[in-house]
Design a protein around this nucleic acid. Structure first.
Lengths: 332, 332
DNA sequence: CTGTTAGCGCGTTCAC
DNA sequence: GTGAACGCGCTAACAG
């Protein structure tokens, strides 16, 4: 256990002044080769690493970006975080991850902590509307990911279009009774429903399997679906759209246990196109995660570096439907 | 966008000196009620949050714990991170997450970054032995999780015992040809193999399906298993132990595609007891994650707070076998 | 080219 | 009880 080194100690060992060490580290050209070599030598030997916390204080920027997600048991968010970390690193930033667990109070605590840690800006998968007003008053920029919100910088998916893609696919395959599994009647549901209406089809509200809001707990999802089955004896539809892959997977398992064949008896399409869908052969709406991350980061970093507060930007990316076995069946 | 506040500005607004604000925030008793109220009032109004980066500099402790994992696509690590975050928060610490992606170079960079960010200590799921010597020379404490390493503070699972449990279960069910899917002949494999030998059974080395080291990529795992099948026409064993749930799941999928029934034709036991195993009904070795986290954090925080360098501690937790459908079949 | 000086926001002596 | 002065490790401005 060697001691923690400071620039002053390095300076002493190299027989130079402390600011000179700073110049060497920051690649300032105005230092003689001779001294650069001497200083680097010492740095190597003692394993000196500059104290970013002091740099932050001095430069008034931490090169830290916060990300607050609502949960991490949904593999979609894991992918998001993973890509974000790599991409941010490439651009010279580190990330601080916080999980709000669908809890607005916790979300606000997380953001306070972001502020305390002097992050330069943050990304947010919001728990709801609750904190948005205060967030917009914060002295640092933020971008909402996954959803697009008016009046906020945000990068999301065109959920209406996603619902439309699914509806069209189901209709094309000859279905005329439709099911939905999700938390509430959000945009992806509306896109789904509207498209059906536009085509003289009908979505029966009783075919909506409502899952309680909160973490993607397999148990809760299972309960919701089984509860639904108890009331209805069987699934009164020939195809179903699940609002995320975790729900789709759980539906598939329950169907299998009951001897319901997928896709022959019921076609299934999920959402997020996570590895769960890939492994299990579940058709799913693909979100362009990488594009989403690069777009989001570019936007955020622009806000950070040019403090000019211009109009808020709300970007929508386009979904695509990845077809796999779970919906490869044509009804006749 | 209000401006970022400092103690000095709060002090001015409350007509007190900056140190007084500091006292109020840190709950110092020697401040008159009157002033406490006045200062708190201002703090509320302007939304002041103390700058932790300055506190870190002054106090020489950041209340930050680093965690470096080798991957995050294995749900086991996600659970680990999630529990760690909550538990650390309870104890007044935040965490910084880094992913080494099974890359020792990256791992070292991550650790350097930890140092730069002034973390107080860190947890490590090591990529291998490569960085261990330098890590032990660092001026801050660290604890290895998931494995127990001699000469290091570490908290791991008794992998030998885990392998033993699986072997015993398979033998009890009447199997006499055994398969294994994993990266190399690690402890869990050795425990498995040894137990077989002790019982006059034989593990045929050709029944070892080797998966390349690296991220738990479903694709790589699939390739490895399919490659094995090509060479052997069929699986030459009636039961198989997979060294993590991701591999177990992939094996199960491939078996299903080939019409091999699980558990009737082949019994399957996985490792980590993640939600993948739960959802898919795969038997699995359970790691007591919560106990592991609390033990690890207690150890690390002790090291942080009492700088007395005593003997290194190496703790092994006991695994349990969770039986599900994938191994519920008795051979006769 | 290099060293001296000042100050980022905060906590911690010290006087008063 | 409260304020003035100092310093944590670093960068930036200015001398020389």
């Amino acid at each position: 256990m060697t001691k923690k080194m400071t620039m002053r100690e390095v300076a002493k060992l190299a027989n130079v002044s402390q600011p000179t060490v700073s110049r060497v580290i920051n690649g300032n050209k105005d230092v003689s080769e001779e001294i650069v070599k001497r200083v680097m030598q010492v740095i190597e030997e003692v394993g000196f690493v500059p104290n970013k916390t002091a740099q932050t204080l001095k430069r008034n920027q931490s090169k830290l970006i916060g990300i607050s997600v609502t949960e991490i048991y949904n593999p979609y968010f894991v992918e998001l975080i993973d890509h974000l970390e790599s991409e941010a690193r490439k651009r010279g930033y580190n990330i601080i991850l916080h999980n709000s667990k669908h809890n607005s109070i916790l979300e606000w605590e997380n953001i306070q902590n972001f502020m305390a840690r002097q992050i330069d800006g943050f990304l947010l998968v919001p728990t709801g509307e609750y904190n948005l007003p205060r967030i917009s008053k914060l002295p640092i920029p933020s971008v909402v990911v996954t959803q697009s919100i008016k009046g906020f910088d945000s990068v999301g998916l065109n959920h209406l279009q996603a619902g439309r893609l699914v509806a069209e696919q189901f209709m094309r395959a000859g279905h005329d009774t439709f099911g939905y599994i999700g938390i509430d009647a959000d945009d992806k549901f509306r896109g789904f429903e509207n498209t059906l209406y536009e085509n003289q089809m009908h979505f029966n509200p009783e075919h909506f399997i409502a899952v309680p809001d909160g973490e993607s707990s397999n148990l809760l999802i299972r309960k919701a679906i089984e509860g639904y089955l108890e009331q209805n004896k069987e699934f009164p539809f020939s195809c179903v759209f699940a609002s995320n892959d975790v729900m789709a997977l759980e539906f598939m398992k329950i169907a299998q246990e009951r001897g319901i064949r997928i896709p022959e008896d019921i076609s299934l399409i999920g959402f997020d196109d996570t590895y769960l869908a890939k492994v299990m052969g579940i058709s799913s709406i693909h979100q362009p995660i990488e594009e989403m991350i690069t777009t989001t980061l570019t936007l955020l970093i622009n806000r950070i570096e040019q403090e000019v507060a211009s109009e808020t930007v709300s970007i929508q990316l386009e979904p695509t439907l990845i077809e796999r076995n779970s919906s490869r069946h044509r009804r006749t």
